[in-house]
Design a protein around this nucleic acid. Sequence first.
DNA 1: ACGAGCGCCTGTCGGC
DNA 2: TGCCGACAGGCGCTCG
Length: 274
Amino acid sequence: MPELPEVETICGWLRQGRGEQPSLLGKHIQRCEVFWPRAVAMPSIAEFQARVVGQVVQQIGRRGKYLLLCLTEDYLLVHLRMSGDLLVERDELPVAPHHRWILHFTGGWRLAFNDPRKFGRAWLVQDPHQVLADLGPEPLDENLTASKFHLRLQSTHRQLKPLLLDQSFLAGLGNIYTDEALHLARLHPLRRSDSLDQAESQRLLESIRQILAQGIARHGASIDWVYRGGDFQNYFRAYQRTGQPCPACGAPIERLVVGQRGTHICPVCQARPA
DNA sequence: ACGAGCGCCTGTCGGC
DNA sequence: TGCCGACAGGCGCTCG
Protein backbone atom coordinates (compact mmCIF):
# COMPACT_ATOMS: atom_id res chain seq x y z
CA MET A 1 0.00 0.00 0.00
CA PRO A 2 2.69 2.25 0.72
CA GLU A 3 3.65 5.54 -0.75
CA LEU A 4 4.97 8.48 1.20
CA PRO A 5 1.63 9.54 2.78
CA GLU A 6 0.76 6.00 3.88
CA VAL A 7 4.21 5.44 5.37
CA GLU A 8 4.06 8.84 7.07
CA THR A 9 0.66 7.90 8.52
CA ILE A 10 1.90 4.58 9.87
CA CYS A 11 4.98 6.34 11.21
CA GLY A 12 2.77 8.73 13.16
CA TRP A 13 0.65 5.93 14.56
CA LEU A 14 3.71 4.00 15.74
CA ARG A 15 5.15 7.13 17.31
CA GLN A 16 2.04 8.59 18.91
CA GLY A 17 -0.19 5.57 19.36
CA ARG A 18 -3.66 5.23 17.93
CA GLY A 19 -6.79 4.73 20.06
CA GLU A 20 -6.04 1.88 22.44
CA GLN A 21 -2.66 1.23 20.81
CA PRO A 22 0.28 2.68 22.70
CA SER A 23 3.26 4.47 21.22
CA LEU A 24 6.20 2.18 20.54
CA LEU A 25 8.64 4.75 21.91
CA GLY A 26 10.44 3.36 24.94
CA LYS A 27 9.14 -0.17 24.32
CA HIS A 28 11.52 -3.00 25.11
CA ILE A 29 11.85 -5.88 22.62
CA GLN A 30 11.57 -9.18 24.45
CA ARG A 31 11.25 -11.73 21.67
CA CYS A 32 11.23 -11.92 17.87
CA GLU A 33 9.52 -14.43 15.61
CA VAL A 34 10.12 -14.73 11.85
CA PHE A 35 7.63 -16.72 9.76
CA TRP A 36 8.84 -15.80 6.26
CA PRO A 37 12.64 -15.64 6.19
CA ARG A 38 12.87 -13.60 2.99
CA ALA A 39 11.05 -10.75 4.74
CA VAL A 40 14.34 -10.09 6.54
CA ALA A 41 16.84 -8.76 4.01
CA MET A 42 19.70 -8.24 6.43
CA PRO A 43 21.35 -9.72 8.46
CA SER A 44 20.76 -13.51 8.71
CA ILE A 45 17.58 -14.57 10.53
CA ALA A 46 19.57 -15.90 13.47
CA GLU A 47 21.53 -12.69 13.84
CA PHE A 48 18.44 -10.54 13.32
CA GLN A 49 16.59 -12.30 16.12
CA ALA A 50 19.57 -12.40 18.44
CA ARG A 51 20.48 -8.75 17.96
CA VAL A 52 17.04 -7.18 18.07
CA VAL A 53 16.07 -8.72 21.39
CA GLY A 54 16.85 -6.50 24.35
CA GLN A 55 16.85 -3.27 22.36
CA VAL A 56 14.56 -0.33 23.08
CA VAL A 57 12.71 1.81 20.52
CA GLN A 58 14.15 5.31 20.80
CA GLN A 59 12.93 7.18 17.72
CA ILE A 60 10.59 6.52 14.81
CA GLY A 61 10.95 8.19 11.43
CA ARG A 62 10.49 7.95 7.69
CA ARG A 63 12.77 8.40 4.68
CA GLY A 64 11.09 8.03 1.30
CA LYS A 65 8.94 4.92 1.62
CA TYR A 66 11.13 3.44 4.35
CA LEU A 67 10.14 3.37 8.01
CA LEU A 68 13.04 3.80 10.42
CA LEU A 69 12.94 2.55 13.97
CA CYS A 70 15.96 3.81 15.85
CA LEU A 71 16.81 1.19 18.46
CA THR A 72 19.36 1.24 21.25
CA GLU A 73 22.14 -0.31 19.14
CA ASP A 74 20.80 -0.59 15.59
CA TYR A 75 18.31 0.81 13.10
CA LEU A 76 15.39 -1.32 12.01
CA LEU A 77 14.33 -0.27 8.50
CA VAL A 78 11.11 -1.54 6.95
CA HIS A 79 9.90 -1.21 3.35
CA LEU A 80 6.27 -2.24 2.86
CA ARG A 81 6.48 -2.60 -0.95
CA MET A 82 3.09 -3.51 -2.46
CA SER A 83 1.03 -5.00 0.34
CA GLY A 84 2.93 -4.66 3.60
CA ASP A 85 1.52 -3.21 6.82
CA LEU A 86 2.76 -2.71 10.36
CA LEU A 87 0.28 -3.46 13.12
CA VAL A 88 0.50 -2.81 16.84
CA GLU A 89 -1.64 -5.43 18.50
CA ARG A 90 -2.20 -7.27 21.78
CA ASP A 91 0.21 -10.12 22.20
CA GLU A 92 -2.48 -12.66 23.10
CA LEU A 93 -4.13 -12.45 19.66
CA PRO A 94 -3.68 -15.43 17.32
CA VAL A 95 -1.12 -14.89 14.57
CA ALA A 96 -2.98 -13.60 11.51
CA PRO A 97 -2.57 -15.40 8.15
CA HIS A 98 -0.09 -13.03 6.51
CA HIS A 99 2.10 -12.07 9.44
CA ARG A 100 5.73 -12.41 8.32
CA TRP A 101 7.51 -11.43 11.52
CA ILE A 102 6.58 -10.20 15.00
CA LEU A 103 8.47 -8.19 17.60
CA HIS A 104 7.11 -8.93 21.07
CA PHE A 105 7.45 -6.11 23.59
CA THR A 106 7.30 -6.21 27.35
CA GLY A 107 3.89 -5.07 28.57
CA GLY A 108 1.68 -7.26 26.37
CA TRP A 109 1.94 -5.53 22.98
CA ARG A 110 3.62 -6.56 19.76
CA LEU A 111 4.54 -5.13 16.36
CA ALA A 112 3.49 -7.39 13.48
CA PHE A 113 4.60 -7.10 9.88
CA ASN A 114 1.70 -8.28 7.74
CA ASP A 115 2.33 -8.70 4.01
CA PRO A 116 0.15 -10.91 1.77
CA ARG A 117 2.36 -10.57 -1.32
CA LYS A 118 5.65 -11.13 0.52
CA PHE A 119 7.47 -8.29 -1.27
CA GLY A 120 8.19 -6.26 1.86
CA ARG A 121 11.61 -6.29 3.51
CA ALA A 122 13.25 -5.37 6.81
CA TRP A 123 16.89 -4.52 7.53
CA LEU A 124 18.66 -4.36 10.88
CA VAL A 125 21.74 -2.21 10.37
CA GLN A 126 24.12 0.01 12.31
CA ASP A 127 24.06 2.70 9.65
CA PRO A 128 20.83 3.42 7.71
CA HIS A 129 22.94 4.90 4.93
CA GLN A 130 23.80 1.31 3.90
CA VAL A 131 20.20 0.93 2.73
CA LEU A 132 19.13 4.50 1.94
CA ALA A 133 22.20 5.70 0.08
CA ASP A 134 20.60 5.89 -3.37
CA LEU A 135 17.45 7.76 -2.37
CA GLY A 136 16.78 11.13 -3.96
CA PRO A 137 15.59 14.22 -2.08
CA GLU A 138 12.44 14.35 0.04
CA PRO A 139 9.75 16.11 -2.00
CA LEU A 140 8.50 18.03 1.05
CA ASP A 141 11.97 19.23 2.05
CA GLU A 142 12.11 22.99 1.65
CA ASN A 143 15.75 22.76 0.63
CA LEU A 144 14.48 21.34 -2.63
CA THR A 145 13.77 24.63 -4.36
CA ALA A 146 11.91 25.05 -7.63
CA SER A 147 15.11 25.96 -9.44
CA LYS A 148 16.99 22.92 -8.06
CA PHE A 149 14.07 20.71 -9.09
CA HIS A 150 14.08 22.27 -12.56
CA LEU A 151 17.80 21.54 -12.88
CA ARG A 152 17.26 17.92 -11.86
CA LEU A 153 14.56 17.59 -14.52
CA GLN A 154 16.83 19.16 -17.12
CA SER A 155 19.70 16.83 -16.27
CA THR A 156 18.01 13.85 -17.90
CA HIS A 157 15.86 13.01 -20.90
CA ARG A 158 13.26 10.69 -19.43
CA GLN A 159 9.50 10.30 -19.50
CA LEU A 160 8.03 12.17 -16.54
CA LYS A 161 6.14 9.26 -15.04
CA PRO A 162 8.95 6.70 -14.82
CA LEU A 163 11.24 9.47 -13.63
CA LEU A 164 8.93 10.46 -10.77
CA LEU A 165 8.62 6.78 -9.82
CA ASP A 166 12.42 6.50 -9.69
CA GLN A 167 13.28 6.75 -5.99
CA SER A 168 16.77 8.00 -6.74
CA PHE A 169 15.26 11.03 -8.48
CA LEU A 170 12.70 11.82 -5.78
CA ALA A 171 11.95 9.70 -2.71
CA GLY A 172 8.40 8.69 -1.86
CA LEU A 173 6.16 8.89 -4.91
CA GLY A 174 4.40 5.75 -6.16
CA ASN A 175 1.83 5.05 -8.83
CA ILE A 176 -1.11 6.81 -7.17
CA TYR A 177 0.52 10.06 -6.16
CA THR A 178 2.43 10.33 -9.44
CA ASP A 179 -0.77 10.12 -11.49
CA GLU A 180 -2.45 12.60 -9.14
CA ALA A 181 0.42 15.08 -9.22
CA LEU A 182 0.79 14.96 -13.01
CA HIS A 183 -2.93 15.54 -13.41
CA LEU A 184 -2.91 18.49 -11.03
CA ALA A 185 0.12 19.91 -12.87
CA ARG A 186 -1.60 19.35 -16.25
CA LEU A 187 1.45 17.49 -17.58
CA HIS A 188 1.34 14.34 -19.72
CA PRO A 189 3.23 11.36 -18.21
CA LEU A 190 5.14 10.86 -21.48
CA ARG A 191 6.51 14.41 -21.53
CA ARG A 192 10.31 14.39 -21.52
CA SER A 193 11.72 15.81 -18.32
CA ASP A 194 14.09 18.18 -20.13
CA SER A 195 11.22 19.63 -22.17
CA LEU A 196 9.71 21.39 -19.16
CA ASP A 197 10.22 25.13 -18.85
CA GLN A 198 10.84 26.79 -15.48
CA ALA A 199 7.13 27.47 -14.91
CA GLU A 200 6.14 23.89 -15.68
CA SER A 201 8.82 22.50 -13.37
CA GLN A 202 7.62 24.77 -10.59
CA ARG A 203 4.01 23.74 -11.21
CA LEU A 204 5.02 20.08 -11.04
CA LEU A 205 6.87 20.49 -7.75
CA GLU A 206 3.99 22.46 -6.22
CA SER A 207 1.50 19.85 -7.44
CA ILE A 208 3.55 17.00 -5.96
CA ARG A 209 3.66 18.81 -2.62
CA GLN A 210 -0.02 19.67 -2.65
CA ILE A 211 -1.05 16.10 -3.47
CA LEU A 212 1.28 14.60 -0.85
CA ALA A 213 0.06 17.08 1.77
CA GLN A 214 -3.56 16.13 1.00
CA GLY A 215 -2.68 12.45 1.18
CA ILE A 216 -1.04 12.89 4.56
CA ALA A 217 -3.94 15.00 5.85
CA ARG A 218 -6.35 12.21 4.81
CA HIS A 219 -4.10 9.54 6.40
CA GLY A 220 -3.32 8.04 3.02
CA ALA A 221 -5.50 6.00 0.68
CA SER A 222 -7.21 2.71 1.54
CA ILE A 223 -8.05 0.60 -1.50
CA ASP A 224 -8.60 -3.03 -2.39
CA TRP A 225 -8.94 -5.48 0.46
CA VAL A 226 -6.35 -3.71 2.57
CA TYR A 227 -8.06 -1.15 4.75
CA ARG A 228 -6.00 1.01 6.99
CA GLY A 229 -8.18 3.95 7.87
CA GLY A 230 -7.18 6.61 5.35
CA ASP A 231 -9.74 8.07 2.95
CA PHE A 232 -7.69 9.84 0.28
CA GLN A 233 -9.12 7.33 -2.24
CA ASN A 234 -12.36 9.37 -2.11
CA TYR A 235 -10.53 12.40 -3.48
CA PHE A 236 -8.67 10.90 -6.45
CA ARG A 237 -8.59 13.18 -9.49
CA ALA A 238 -7.42 10.59 -12.02
CA TYR A 239 -6.07 7.40 -10.42
CA GLN A 240 -8.39 4.43 -11.10
CA ARG A 241 -11.08 6.78 -12.41
CA THR A 242 -11.09 5.51 -16.00
CA GLY A 243 -14.21 6.78 -17.81
CA GLN A 244 -15.24 9.10 -15.00
CA PRO A 245 -15.21 12.87 -15.52
CA CYS A 246 -12.04 14.91 -15.04
CA PRO A 247 -12.64 17.17 -12.02
CA ALA A 248 -11.19 20.12 -13.94
CA CYS A 249 -12.87 19.86 -17.37
CA GLY A 250 -15.32 16.96 -17.30
CA ALA A 251 -13.69 14.92 -20.06
CA PRO A 252 -13.57 11.18 -19.37
CA ILE A 253 -10.36 9.99 -17.69
CA GLU A 254 -8.32 7.59 -19.84
CA ARG A 255 -6.11 4.69 -18.86
CA LEU A 256 -2.82 3.96 -20.61
CA VAL A 257 0.30 2.02 -19.76
CA VAL A 258 3.53 3.92 -19.17
CA GLY A 259 6.63 2.10 -18.02
CA GLN A 260 4.54 -1.02 -17.43
CA ARG A 261 2.34 0.79 -14.91
CA GLY A 262 -1.34 1.55 -15.25
CA THR A 263 -1.56 5.31 -15.78
CA HIS A 264 -4.56 7.62 -15.62
CA ILE A 265 -4.82 10.95 -17.38
CA CYS A 266 -7.25 13.57 -18.61
CA PRO A 267 -6.67 13.67 -22.38
CA VAL A 268 -7.77 17.32 -22.48
CA CYS A 269 -5.90 18.81 -19.51
CA GLN A 270 -2.75 16.73 -20.05
CA ALA A 271 -1.81 17.28 -23.69
CA ARG A 272 0.15 14.44 -25.26
CA PRO A 273 3.63 15.51 -26.39
CA ALA A 274 4.31 15.63 -30.13
C1' DA B 1 21.19 6.63 -20.96
C1' DC B 2 17.00 4.84 -21.27
C1' DG B 3 13.16 1.73 -21.34
C1' DA B 4 11.02 -2.88 -22.03
C1' DG B 5 10.47 -7.45 -20.09
C1' DC B 6 10.45 -10.28 -16.34
C1' DG B 7 10.64 -12.18 -11.63
C1' DC B 8 9.14 -11.97 -7.03
C1' DC B 9 4.08 -13.29 -4.54
C1' DT B 10 -0.94 -13.55 -3.28
C1' DG B 11 -5.47 -12.11 -3.92
C1' DT B 12 -9.49 -10.12 -6.41
C1' DC B 13 -12.33 -9.31 -10.15
C1' DG B 14 -14.55 -9.67 -14.69
C1' DG B 15 -15.51 -12.50 -18.65
C1' DC B 16 -16.74 -16.79 -20.59
C1' DT C 1 -20.07 -22.70 -10.51
C1' DG C 2 -15.39 -22.92 -12.12
C1' DC C 3 -11.53 -21.61 -14.68
C1' DC C 4 -8.33 -18.14 -16.59
C1' DG C 5 -6.29 -14.02 -17.59
C1' DA C 6 -5.63 -9.30 -16.24
C1' DC C 7 -4.46 -6.55 -12.76
C1' DA C 8 -2.72 -4.61 -8.19
C1' DG C 9 -0.05 1.09 -3.97
C1' DG C 10 7.28 -1.69 -5.69
C1' DC C 11 11.62 -2.57 -7.20
C1' DG C 12 15.81 -5.07 -8.84
C1' DC C 13 17.71 -7.43 -12.62
C1' DT C 14 18.98 -8.35 -17.62
C1' DC C 15 18.95 -7.13 -22.20
C1' DG C 16 18.84 -4.30 -26.34
